[in-house]
């Protein structure tokens, strides 16, 4: 298998074609939109968070390349059922491990749009909680 087939392996394309937790959510605790200005990838993330700061439901609405969409889809599975404290410090390395494919430096921003969106969503949530 060459590099490119490794990158676009079946599970990545499955997530791209049928993203998990796809859609929008009414009454989300946090809804955050993030955009990658360089390439135009976009992601809407909706989190339903309960009183114990647990993410009880998540919806993602990504538009963009296979890498950014697959990343959003996988991350939505990853964080569902976890607490905000568990996910707020997720790292770039965790995302890359989750994707499990070689990512070139120029595509890193595609892979990490989901993480940026999650991080900013947790920040918005915490700011809101403090009020």
């Amino acid at each position: 298998m060459d590099m490119i087939e490794l990158m676009y392996q079946e599970n990545i394309l499955d997530h791209y074609k049928n993203p998990h937790n796809f859609g929008k959510m009414e009454n989300a605790t946090v809804h955050h939109h993030e955009k990658n200005p360089l390439c135009g990838d976009e992601l809407d993330m909706f989190l339903m968070i309960d009183e114990n700061k647990k993410i009880v439901d998540v919806k993602v609405h990504p538009t963009g390349c296979a890498i950014s969409v697959a990343s959003a889809s996988m991350l939505s599975d990853e964080i569902k059922g976890k607490s905000i404290d568990e996910v707020k410090n997720m790292t770039k390395e965790q995302i890359l491990e989750m994707l499990g494919i070689p990512i070139s430096p120029v595509r890193l921003k595609c892979a990490l749009l989901s993480l940026d969106t999650l991080k900013n969503s947790t920040l918005i949530f915490e700011k809101y909680m403090r009020k």
């Binding site: 590099m3 490119i4 390349c65 296979a66 890498i67 070139s104």
Partner: peptide, 13 residues
Amino acid sequence: GVHAHDVSQILDS
């Protein structure tokens, strides 16, 4: 059905 970035990446290969 394919985003332009992915087209470009595969063409690069």
